[in-house]
């Protein structure tokens, strides 16, 4: 693939979802923004849906991952099983290596 961005992350890498709140057709759920998880797999390369939604080509193709989050990490008051997880498809441009995580974790805090 010539017109594709190289994957930056490997399975098992710990990543943090960017705590950003742009307008538009965003496929990154708000509930995981600012939270950290682990790369479960690389799904492949796909056009950027944020551009496709506006009739643009969405190129270059972007690596799409599945990221596994512990439910307890997403919601500190998560009251069900301690080992429960949520796995979410997230494009590479929404991820950064964990450790550089934003100080603020909750969307509510972001708006404070």
């Amino acid at each position: 693939m010539n017109d594709a961005i190289e994957p930056l992350f490997a399975v098992g890498d710990r990543v943090t979802v960017l705590a950003q709140w742009p307008h538009g057709h965003i496929r990154t759920p708000i509930y995981c923004r600012g939270h950290s998880g682990v790369i479960e797999r690389l799904c492949g390369h796909f056009p950027n849906p944020e551009e496709l939604a506006f009739g643009l080509p969405g190129l270059p193709l972007r690596p799409l991952y599945r990221v596994r989050f512990r439910s307890r990490d997403l919601w500190p008051d998560y009251a069900e099983g301690g080992d429960d997880v949520v796995e979410i498809e997230i494009y590479q441009h929404w991820l950064e290596p964990a450790g550089q995580a934003a100080l603020l974790r909750n969307p509510e805090d972001m708006h404070a």
């Binding site: 796909f46 849906p49 997880v85 949520v86 796995e87 498809e89």
Partner: peptide, 14 residues
């Protein structure tokens, strides 16, 4: 209780 739940959020192309 010992079963853990794995929720898959189908947010993109899969």
């Amino acid at each position: 209780e010992p079963v853990s739940v794995r929720v898959h959020d189908s947010t993109a192309d899969m």
